[in-house]
């Protein structure tokens, strides 16, 4: 008897829910979707439109020039070299962050004492605003009174790190590594902490040494988390150019001019919004591509 009543209730509720579902939840979602459309679809469409326009004569009434901007940008050597530098910046930066981040995570994970305080201190750079990271890099590497420059000079390296085309990009990469490696550590640590002890014990029984356990048991189990983390980081490195703007302004001799910074310069310094739009679209394509992978990983998990 009781179960029948329960069933009847459930059916009624279900029917009510299906009917209600559309209305309530739809209306709850609607405001966000409208605002999201204004902040994403509109700029995207406008970017496509602007990529066919010439803004040099009149800012308010740009002139249609067809593929002019596209031809200009695609034949511009700086476009290709800035993308090349972007790939180096993202690639080398991520490899370093991955190795240092995983290394620190493993070291912290196996500490017998003081894990908590170490993690807390290690993660502090994550909170630092990119503009401050850039200022700090510039200050520490200043050739007359910078602390790091002074340390380098103790080792006999008298160089203007940020003023030299061969060291400026590595310095920028290291600023990003400094700021964001802790995030990789935190992600890997979360993965390590959620590992069950069984596979490790099984490996112990089989007489595996630590390195074997690491490569065959631990890393494969947290590989997916690391991939997702790297996807987020790569999109984020593309997003920001604050550090470059503060520390080197794209120089010296374009050596730190990544595509995002190049866009800023083309659009806001030279007021060439048409070519800037082409650059922006190439960046968006890459982000959308990476984002698709990310969503696949995330939604596939459930």
């Amino acid at each position: 008897m009781q179960t029948n009543v329960d069933k009847a209730w459930k059916n009624k509720l279900e029917a009510k829910r299906i009917k209600k579902r559309f209305s309530t939840e739809f209306w709850m979602l609607l405001p966000s979707m409208i605002l999201l459309a204004i902040i994403s679809i509109f700029p995207f469409l406008y970017l496509i439109y602007a990529s066919f326009m010439d803004f040099s004569i009149s800012f308010e009434n740009p002139e249609f020039i067809g593929l002019g901007n596209w031809k200009y940008v695609l034949s511009d050597t700086l476009f290709w070299s800035s993308w090349g530098r972007t790939i180096l910046y993202v690639g080398i930066g991520l490899v370093l962050q991955l190795f240092i981040g995983v290394g620190m995570a493993l070291a912290i994970f196996h500490l017998p004492k003081g894990k908590n305080i170490v993690v807390t201190l290690w993660m502090i750079p994550v909170f630092v605003a990119p503009v401050v990271a850039g200022l700090l890099g510039r200050y520490l590497l200043n050739s007359t009174y910078g602390l790091y420059d002074w340390l380098l000079s103790l080792f006999g390296m008298e160089t203007q790190v940020l003023g030299n085309i061969s060291t400026s990009m590595p310095a920028i990469i290291l600023m990003d590594v400094w700021e964001w490696t802790p995030l990789i550590t935190l992600i890997v640590l979360a993965g390590l902490n959620s590992l069950s002890s069984e596979p490790l014990e099984a490996a112990d029984v089989d007489g595996a040494n630590y390195f074997q356990k690491l490569t065959y048991v631990i890393l494969p189990l947290i590989a997916k988390t690391i991939v997702v983390a790297l996807l987020v980081r790569s999109m984020d490195i593309l997003r920001f150019v604050d550090k470059i703007r503060i520390a080197t302004e794209g120089g010296p001799a374009d050596s730190t001019k990544v595509v995002g910074y190049y866009l800023m310069e083309v659009a806001f310094k030279f007021q060439d919004f048409g070519s800037g739009s082409v650059l922006g679209l190439t960046m968006l394509v890459v982000t959308i591509f990476l984002g698709q992978f990310f969503v696949k990983f995330m939604m596939g998990k459930e």
Partner: peptide
């Protein structure tokens, strides 16, 4: 799923590429 993808690409869109059209608007 499509909405999720839309949300993520908006969140992760490169700031310079978002700023340009917003600036014109």
């Amino acid at each position: 799923k499509h909405i999720a993808f839309w949300i993520i690409s908006t969140r992760m869109a490169p700031i310079p590429a978002v700023m340009l059209p917003l600036y014109l608007l």
